[in-house]
């Protein structure tokens, strides 16, 4: 069986759940994976053991305290064995995987949503079409979240490699976001508002539901362009962020191509819109034809009683 290297996804100093999905992707490729954990504290690699994984390498280095693509790629490359490189299709991991691939003279296939032998399928043209490519030999592959089942956890067989990379950029200051809220790019549940919300103040109703669900709040391009109070960092869509959550709730969003491009691959989509003919409904698993004023209080109280 050929080898693969999984670059573990980490979040807030621990292993992110998508890493278990990468193990299933590695097995679907017919490979035997080694998990590589970029970290400053090797103990987090204890959480990166899975059925089907015989070896976990904690790559420990000061360079991993802040993200610098060049030093991360150098340190990961030095510690990782050869084989197909597999990473999560998050903005940062796509970036570092591209550098590791280039370092090894390999090609990269990003945003994979299906694997059949050595054939990999990804969306192209913002999801308006799908493309299947075949690999001959090693390559790097990034895999979207919520596509493959999570492999079961088991005890990790960890070896630690001390590796420092030369930092090529210097982080001067980290500017914390004004809001403590989760970013749409990091969230498993997203509730987004469009111009149908009427005013940016009404996004507080989305925030209440987000608080109940532990969700991020997003926005359509129309909302971001119309209201200065809704920052571009919240924008989901072609000129914003592409998201792939388990659940996407679109409120007062008509479903323009621009928006669909950023969220159509979400696992479940709920649409709330007063216009029964809004295009968003043809992409929704559950559609509610109603104004947000009618629907959101009911949704919030129903979800609150379920989650409590």
């Amino acid at each position: 069986m050929s080898e693969s290297v999984i670059i573990a996804e980490t979040s807030k100093g621990s292993i992110a759940p998508v890493t278990a999905e990468l193990v299933s992707a590695a097995i679907a490729l017919g490979t035997s994976p080694t998990v590589v954990v970029p970290c400053t504290d090797a103990s987090i690699a204890d959480g990166a053991g899975y059925d089907g994984v015989s070896r976990t390498i904690a790559v420990k280095g000061d360079c991993f305290a802040n993200y610098d693509a060049s030093s991360w790629a150098a340190a990961i490359d030095a510690a990782a064995p050869s084989g197909i490189i597999i990473a999560a299709a998050t903005p940062q991991s796509k970036d570092v995987a591209a550098r590791v691939a280039a370092r090894r003279g390999l090609s990269i296939v990003q945003d994979v949503v299906a694997i059949d032998g050595m054939n990999l399928t990804s969306p192209i043209y913002s999801g308006k079409a799908m493309q299947t490519v075949s690999l001959s030999g090693d390559a790097a592959v990034s895999v979207r979240a919520n596509v493959f089942p999570a492999a079961s956890s088991s005890a990790a067989n960890v070896s630690v490699v001390d590796q420092s990379g030369d930092v090529a950029t210097a982080v001067q200051e980290v500017i914390a976001r004004a809001s403590e809220r989760l970013d749409v790019a990091e969230a498993n549940i997203i509730i987004s508002g469009g111009r149908g919300m009427g005013s940016p103040d009404n996004f507080s109703h989305l925030e209440k539901i987000a608080d109940v669900l532990g969700a991020a709040v997003g926005a359509s391009r129309a909302a971001v362009d119309t209201w200065d109070d809704i920052p571009h960092s919240m924008q989901v869509g072609q000129t914003g962020k592409t998201v792939n959550p388990n659940l996407y709730i679109a409120v007062g969003i008509s479903g323009a191509i621009q928006h669909l491009a950023g969220m159509r691959s979400s696992k479940y989509i709920v649409a709330v819109n007063k216009d029964a003919d809004a295009p968003i409904f043809s992409h929704a698993d559950y559609g509610i034809v109603a104004t947000w004023e009618e629907a959101l209080p009911v949704l919030e109280s129903a979800l609150s009683s379920m989650m409590s």
Partner: peptide
């Protein structure tokens, strides 16, 4: 070393469930 095998339209999503009125949000939550 990576070659295109095929391109295809995105998979059609099966029709979802659609409800009238805000009170249906309770059923959707369930």
């Amino acid at each position: 070393s990576v070659t295109i095998v095929s391109q295809s339209p995105p998979p059609a999503k099966p029709a979802g469930k659609k409800y009238e009125g805000g009170s249906s949000a309770e059923e959707v939550a369930r």
